[in-house]
């Protein structure tokens, strides 16, 4: 017998949307750079990088919301990963040159 699988739709939607948005923004940055608009390309590119970095985080939040009722223990694992990523961000901010 196969156990009922928890939903994945929200997580997959969030990951698809985030990766598409980041690739689009970074593609725009690349086009601006090739066109010689380097200052604008840098700003847009940094926005694209931030969107890309946030996409797996948003995916983990979506995963937590999907698992918290059906598989509470696994939902808490998603929270644990988010805590570790928060730690990474804190270290990154403190170690800024």
């Amino acid at each position: 017998m196969i156990a009922q699988r928890p939903p994945t739709r929200l997580t997959s939607r969030v990951l698809t949307l985030g990766s598409f948005a980041a690739a689009t923004i970074l593609g725009l940055s690349l086009a601006l750079n090739v066109a010689g608009q380097t200052a604008a390309a840098g700003l847009v590119g940094n926005l694209g990088v931030v969107v890309l970095l946030f996409t797996p985080v948003a995916g983990l939040i979506a995963t937590w919301s999907e698992l918290r009722i059906a598989r509470p223990a696994h939902g808490w694992m998603a929270v644990a990963v988010l805590v570790v990523l928060g730690l990474a961000t804190l270290i990154a901010l403190l170690a800024r040159p």
Binding site: L26, S29, L30, G45
Partner: peptide, 8 residues
Amino acid sequence: PALAGAVV
């Protein structure tokens, strides 16, 4: 950033 755009 521009290099990141190209690679992504």
